[in-house]
Design a protein around this nucleic acid. Structure first.
Length: 487
RNA sequence: GGCCCCAUCGUCUAGCGGCCUAGGACGCCGCCCUCUCAAGGCGGAGAUCACGGGUUCGAAUCCCGUUGGGGCCGCCA
């Protein structure tokens, strides 16, 4: 049978790294098994769902190149035979109501007239008395008179699922293996809210069944929802899909990932200058691994090697340091051409408008390729080719206050001004010659020249840098440095 | 409070009863390369496999308990 999986985000914010990981695993599973990857929007939270969030999620999915075969599309169209794929649309089509009514008729569900305030109070009281705060099922057996009375009060009921009082709900989770729950510990959850909207636990089951999902791959914070949902499948006499619960992603300190750990949304990582390939690779490795602990995957390799068997049961801490290392690896793998294109938007943000067709621009960006960890690093490392040098204080103290500095810089200035073929080969031999014939060590000469033209002790290979800068500019910068020293 | 899940270097992980005096990767340290910084190469430190009991000739691997961490118990998903 062809596999069908889905990613079903709630549009209540940007795509989170946890959500992205869930989306990725579903995507990889579909690719690996030759199945269908569906995107469904779970916007049944009328208060928190926004169109901006939906757009942002689509945008992040696109950035990560997680293409879905079926579902809600960015242009708001629907693709596939199991639509609508947006739950609010499904609600207005009356889908959930229809199934709720079926359970009502079969006495597998009932109306509950408790107000949210009453429910809140019951919960608080139970918690303060250290009792189970779950709903006690008091509306299960309302008399006709009681119902009349509630109606007279104008109360809007919710529909609750009648959970079995005994027995067990067991299932074989694809990552956690055998999971077992006592039905008497489950509770009569709300299927339909007073607003008429379905709740997650109900809508999810109806849609997963109607959309013919074969596997549910989601975070393990849903483990305790699973027995609830499984009982709904049972009440309808439906065959449930297989479940695979993925471990959670934690912050560096091992606590739940949150804003105080830094960036949590995919858009933020994009802004910071990570490549989408890096994010996919890194996220794949959080909670999953191959038997040979492979860490860098070529294009298409994850799709080929992914297997739920490699999923970790325990939670994984998100390590931004390793993420940066990995991004450096991916940046180094880029062709000069790809690097320029990838860096371009970040250069613009830096105030550098570089032209790929200009050989100088093109070469300068590639010059320090092996050093970039983030695409946003590029600007700060190449700006001095195009803008005024910002002298690093420490570099001035360390290098430009050395003895004989003026002799060296004046000598180099003279040497360079006499070079007609201003390229790195000639520059290097002339510079070395100057040092040797004047009794200076190479470093004594190289370092001040470097600081003079770039303002920093760190930078690209010296003579290429000088070549790219050009004779006129280099001499100008040496002059400027000399004037700084005199002061 | 109840139920559930989890537990190998700081971190991500390999391991699925003997190949483990526990392997790889990030990070860290040192050396090499070298015009700096990186990258790269080589080497090193770093895990009594949370703890305590079993089972077994033999356990990181199986079982039980303890501890610790996490999740859920919402008209959120």
């Amino acid at each position: 049978m062809k596999t069908r999986v889905r990613f079903a985000p709630s549009p209540t914010g940007h795509l989170h790294v946890g959500g992205a990981r869930t989306a990725l695993f579903n995507y990889l599973f579909a690719k690996k098994t030759g199945g269908t990857f569906v995107l469904r929007i779970e916007d049944t939270d009328e208060l928190r769902s926004t169109d901006e969030s939906t757009k942002s999620i689509f945008q992040s999915m696109k950035w990560l190149d997680l293409k879905w075969d079926e579902g809600a599309m960015p242009d708001l169209s629907e693709k596939g035979d199991f639509g609508p794929y947006i739950q609010s649309k499904r609600e207005s089509d009356g889908i959930y109501k229809k199934y709720a009514e079926q359970l009502l008729e079969e006495k597998k569900a009932y109306y509950c007239y408790c107000s949210s305030e009453e429910l809140d109070e019951m919960r608080k009281k139970a918690l303060s008395e250290k009792r189970d705060p779950k709903y006690d099922g008091r509306c299960r057996h309302l008399s006709a008179e009681e119902i009349e009375e509630f109606k007279k009060q104008g109360r809007k009921p919710v529909i609750r699922f009648r959970m079995p009082d005994d027995g067990q709900t067991v299932f074989e989770d694809l990552v956690h293996k055998h999971l077992k729950f006592e039905n008497k510990l489950l509770y009569d959850f709300i299927m339909i809210k007073a607003s008429g909207y379905p709740t997650y636990n109900f809508a999810c089951v109806i849609d997963d069944h109607l959309m013919e999902m074969t596997h549910i791959i989601r975070g393990d914070d849903h483990i305790s929802n699973t027995p609830l949902q499984l009982n709904v499948y049972k009440a309808f006499g439906w065959e449930p899909p297989q479940h695979a619960h993925l471990s959670m992603i934690l912050g560096q300190d091992g606590t739940r990932l949150s804003k105080r750990h830094g960036a949590t949304s995919i858009t933020e990582y994009e802004k910071q200058g990570f490549l989408p390939e890096t994010m996919k690779n890194y996220l794949a490795l959080l909670g999953w691994g191959t038997t040979d602990s492979q860490d860098i995957f070529k294009k298409g390799e994850l799709e080929e090697k992914f297997d739920l068997k490699g999923c970790q049961k325990s939670a994984a801490a998100f390590d931004p340091v390793k993420l940066e290392w990995m991004n450096g690896e991916y940046i180094r793998q880029l062709s000069k051409d790809e690097l320029f294109d990838a860096a371009q938007p970040y250069l613009k943000d830096f105030g550098l408008n570089l032209d790929k067709a200009n050989p100088l621009h093109f070469n300068v960006v590639a010059l320090e390729q092996e050093k970039y960890k983030l695409l946003s690093d590029v600007g700060g490392m190449v700006y001095f080719f195009f803008q005024d040098v910002k002298y690093d204080e420490a570099a001035i103290d360390k290098i430009l206050k050395a003895p004989d500095i003026e002799t060296i810089l004046n000598g180099i200035k003279k040497t360079y001004s006499e070079i007609s073929e201003f390229n790195d080969i000639v520059l290097e031999s002339k510079t070395r010659e100057f040092a040797k014939s004047n009794g200076f060590k190479n470093g004594q000469v190289f370092h001040p020249v470097r600081v003079s033209v770039s303002g920093s002790t760190k930078g690209p290979t010296l003579f290429k840098m000088i070549e790219y800068l050009g004779k006129e500019e280099v001499i100008k910068r040496i002059d400027k440095t000399l004037s700084l020293i005199e002061i």
